[in-house]
Each structure stands twice: as structure tokens, then as C-alpha cells.
């Protein structure tokens, strides 16, 4: 099997103006050998889904600190599904209460990572997801 570059979209939906967390993750994944497409602040769900399509990414990571995850995340998932991207996993990072986490996981989110999650854990999770997808063909 050939190893291939893993492509990840890191996006910040919503209106909060802090992208330090997103940049930390982007750099950590770069250092783990991944190609990280970073799209900047204030992305709408439509913009994120369209970027995921054009860039043909393996995974979409959403960084949300605004507290608006319960409205934003399902809208990103829907916009992606509408573009035939239902097989592309969505990960969420941010301050997410437990009950919201369960609800998001029930709405097509592959994983939710709190702000204290070691970046290694996120990296390993993505590698596992991609390996599973490649094994399925």
C-alpha cells in the first residue's frame, strides 16, 4: 500500500474572532506530516462545505469557541451532505458541554475534542479514520 498525504480542512465557523486554537491544531497536524488547508475566520457553513469539496479533503475539523456549536455544526454537516460529502468525517474542537457532545455525535460528528486535548490524540484519531477509509477502498 502506498502512503499518501492526508488532507485536512481546518475551519472556523461563526463570528468569534480568535483563531489561536485553530492555528495550534493546524501546525500540529502539519508537523505530523498532514497537508492542512486553513481558511481563516468567520466561515459560513456553505463556505466550509464548498472548500471541503474543492480541496477533496479527508477530514474537516471545526474550531468553535463562540458557544454556537449546536447551530453551526449541524449546518456544516448538512451543507456537506448536500454536496455528496456525507462520507467525509467532521471533527469538532472547542468548549463543548457533555450533553451537547452526545447530541453532536448523534448528528454525524465523528469526534469532539475539548480544549485540553493533546494534539497527538487528534493526530492519531485522524490517522485511524483515514486508514479505515482507505481499507474500505
Amino acid at each position: 500500500m502506498t502512503t499518501r498525504a492526508v488532507r485536512v480542512l481546518i475551519a472556523k465557523p461563526g463570528l468569534d474572532g480568535h483563531d489561536r486554537g485553530a492555528k495550534v491544531i493546524a501546525r500540529a497536524l502539519r508537523d505530523a506530516g498532514m497537508e492542512v488547508i486553513y481558511t481563516g475566520l468567520r466561515q459560513t457553513p456553505e463556505m466550509i462545505a464548498e472548500a471541503a469539496l474543492q480541496e477533496d479533503v479527508d477530514v474537516v475539523g471545526l474550531s468553535i469557541l463562540s458557544g454556537a456549536h449546536m447551530t453551526l455544526v449541524p449546518r456544516v454537516r448538512e451543507a456537506m451532505n448536500a454536496r455528496d460529502l456525507s462520507d467525509v468525517p467532521v471533527l469538532v474542537g472547542g468548549i463543548i458541554p457533555d450533553e451537547d457532545r452526545d447530541s453532536l455525535m448523534g448528528q454525524g460528528v465523528a469526534a469532539v475534542f475539548g480544549p485540553a486535548t493533546p494534539t497527538d490524540e487528534i493526530r492519531d484519531f485522524i490517522h485511524r479514520l483515514v486508514a479505515e477509509k482507505d481499507a474500505d477502498g
Partner: peptide
């Protein structure tokens, strides 16, 4: 990056205004 083989592709940040236009297709590559 010659060290990790990874990359951060950030050019789309400057092209946000083109989002949502079906006559535009943007692809980043390392």
C-alpha cells in the same frame, strides 16, 4: 515542510470573496 512532509496551505484566506461562486474553483496544493 522538509522536516515533517506536512504543509499549511493558507492562500484561501485571501480568497474568501470568491466563496459561493459556482464559476470559481480553488485548489490548494503543497
Amino acid at each position: 515542510s522538509p522536516f515533517s512532509g506536512g504543509a499549511i496551505l493558507g492562500d484561501r484566506i485571501r480568497m474568501v470573496e470568491l466563496a459561493g461562486d459556482a464559476g470559481v474553483f480553488i485548489r490548494s496544493m503543497a
